[in-house]
Design a protein around this nucleic acid. Structure first.
Lengths: 193, 193
DNA sequence: GAGTTTTTGTATCGATCAGTTCAAAACGCG
DNA sequence: CGCGTTTTGAACTGATCGATACAAAAACTC
């Protein structure tokens, strides 16, 4: 019917994700987004309508990828406790690795920067929280039945605890706690499971 | 010698703290700061030199108050475990209370929003982290000697863990976890201590 | 290849950003 | 009172913010 696009929409969202992830929502300008995606202003606004809409697309992409990662980790054929250990280890590796220069986790960043003043973003964060919680709860409940998790414990409560521990490690890493401190946190948390 | 100020500097810092705490650093404009403090632009810049300097003053004030609160809590004549319980309870009360409308904790907010791109702010966060860690470690070590904390555990590791749990609860609260979930996190964390 | 529709580049919008300028106003001191 | 010093208010700086206008360019249909 008409002139086709010469860029891939998903790749553009991915590039925007990188920009938002690195600098945060407010600190990323529309100019930064143009440069990151390689698109002109018209293409950005024609395709994504506003900075906020593009951010929500990027956040959704981020959440989908994280969900897939978590699902893959929980599918491993190891005891539930080892799944939690692997999860905490991966978080520590991510936060202490030099690759990403302290950009942290977009989910945590967004919860802190935007959730209190954007109800729709807050709602998406809640949905993602619930999804991750359900996946973790199922894995922990399976472990409880299998016997490697204390039967006296509640799987849902443990899942909330694991999620909070992940966030706690991420914030501690940003506040300057060293890798040894983060490992101590993970070790202590595993004692509680 | 000359014309005196007709405002109280500390009160102005306090008002700026409220503004930064509520909206974050980037989202608080210098105009917002003028309105919050009741000062004119000239007075703000004459006294505090820049938005960033005023923020650092506000952050220092916030940290000093939190340190005093923590010190008061740790001075109570109760077992160390009960001190930790009281600390976690106070965090949950703060995060679920309607008073402050989800502004969270300025320390966590700053760690996430600014630490990666402002080395001096990051350094002050590290100092505060170390100070809180030392206070917590001392209290836990005393509890360990008194016997209400497992002697096999390391006080410093537990202190890192408690700090991470506090941050984890705060982030979870922002991401939409309910009060019951936060209480489950606190209960599980206490099991590990 | 003409006509239609969408994309794209450029130029620009008004608003707001952090920060400065400058002179008038307000005080302490002699 | 009047001099010296500082604070204060208001106007204003250039830069940048998110978003838009518009016409040229590109590609599909017929």
């Amino acid at each position: 019917m008409a002139r086709p696009r010469k860029f891939d929409e998903e790749r553009a969202v991915d590039a925007a994700l990188e920009a938002f992830w690195t600098a945060g929502y407010e600190a990323t300008s529309t100019q930064d987004l143009c440069e990151a995606t390689g698109l002109g202003r018209s293409s950005v606004y024609n395709t994504f309508h506003s900075k906020r809409d593009l951010f929500r697309r990027a956040l959704a992409l981020y959440m989908r990828r994280r969900s897939e990662q978590l699902a893959a980790l929980l599918e491993e054929d190891v005891p539930a406790r080892e799944k939690v250990r692997a999860l905490l280890d991966s978080v520590i590796a991510e936060e202490t690795g030099a690759e990403d220069d302290g950009r942290g986790c977009l989910y945590v960043n967004t919860a802190v920067e935007l959730a209190s003043r954007d109800p729709e973003v807050a709602h998406e964060l809640e949905r993602d929280y619930a999804r991750r919680h359900d996946a973790l709860t199922a894995a922990l409940e399976a472990g409880r039945r299998a016997g490697d998790i204390d039967r006296a414990k509640d799987a849902s409560a443990l899942a909330h605890f694991v999620t909070a521990t992940v966030s706690g490690i991420r914030v501690a890493a940003r506040a300057g706690a060293g890798e040894a401190a983060l490992r101590a946190v993970a070790r202590t948390a595993l004692d509680a499971i």
